[in-house]
């Protein structure tokens, strides 16, 4: 009955087949060709996935190679002639430096630049009413069309009470109501899920502000109590503004940038 490490045990006792090493070597050598063949043959979604994987592998490989190259690279230095006395046989040589191309400082700078946060969105796309609202037909023969349903995510405060359905002009569906937003603090470079307090301004229209519609570019007020921010005076901050940076109706979540 095979039990525990029986495969290793068997190899230890009886060894491998005589041509094991050779077969292994050949299989490995053949593998690249097989991969290439497969890459040419594959199509569809699998091709997409496979090629992406190969692409990233190739990039990684190139990077590694480059790093090795850099390690061995010889660069000219500005102060060509070294200080002090130099023997005659070294005089015609230019000063060389074995160092990486980029200094660490430069790299750091680049990283910072890439990581700098954009200013919040100054411009937004206009949204027409017919995109924002869906007409709800009412009446016994569905002939009246004065009711509207908001088809974008909305924020509805806790204390909201509906008007009698008969007179309610705007419906904000329960499925599209949001209470939390993923807010990024640009300086802390961290993202928190914070409760929304209210909609400050929707740049599209004051009516949308009133309805609490959350679209890209909307300024919302979020509860930052759990971040533990304090004012210069030492008071604990709890309400802060943030601007929505994504299209919530397309993503199913609200991403916002804290305005500091």
């Amino acid at each position: 009955m095979p039990q525990n490490e029986y495969i290793e045990e068997s190899i230890r006792r009886h060894g491998r087949r005589m041509d094991h090493a050779e077969r292994k070597r050949k299989r490995e050598a053949r593998q690249v060709h097989k991969d290439a063949e497969f890459a040419q043959k594959v199509h569809g979604l699998k091709a997409k996935l496979y090629n992406k994987k190969r692409h990233s592998e190739k990039i990684q490989m190139k990077k590694t190679l480059k790093m090795h190259d850099e390690k061995n690279a010889k660069q000219k230095t500005d102060d060509a002639v070294p200080d002090g006395a130099v023997p005659a046989y070294l005089l015609d040589r230019e000063g060389q430096q074995r160092a990486k191309v980029l200094s660490n400082m430069l790299k750091q700078k680049r990283k910072e630049k890439a990581g700098k946060w954009n200013v919040p969105l100054p411009k937004v796309r206009g949204i027409a009413e017919d995109e924002m609202f869906k007409v709800v037909k009412t009446g016994k023969s569905k002939s009246k069309a004065w009711k509207r349903m908001v088809t974008k995510p909305t924020f509805v405060g806790d204390g909201f009470t509906r008007k009698p359905p008969k007179y309610e002009r705007f419906i904000r569906p329960m499925a599209l109501r949001y209470k939390k937003a993923n807010v990024t603090h640009p300086e802390l470079k961290a993202t928190f899920q914070l409760p929304i307090i209210g909609v400050k301004k929707n740049p599209q229209s004051p009516m949308y502000t009133q309805l609490g519609v959350l679209t890209k570019g909307t300024i919302i007020e979020v509860n930052v109590a759990e971040l533990g921010l304090v004012t210069t005076g030492g008071k604990v901050l709890w309400g802060k503004y943030a601007q929505i940076t994504n299209n919530p109706e397309n993503d199913g979540c609200i991403n916002a940038l804290l305005l500091v």
Partner: peptide, 19 residues
């Protein structure tokens, strides 16, 4: 639930992608 309110193919597709 969100998809029930999708009003265009694009929006539906984005929602599926996000899901």
């Amino acid at each position: 639930r969100l998809l029930k309110f999708g009003d265009s193919l694009y929006r539906c597709k984005q929602l599926k992608r996000a899901a």
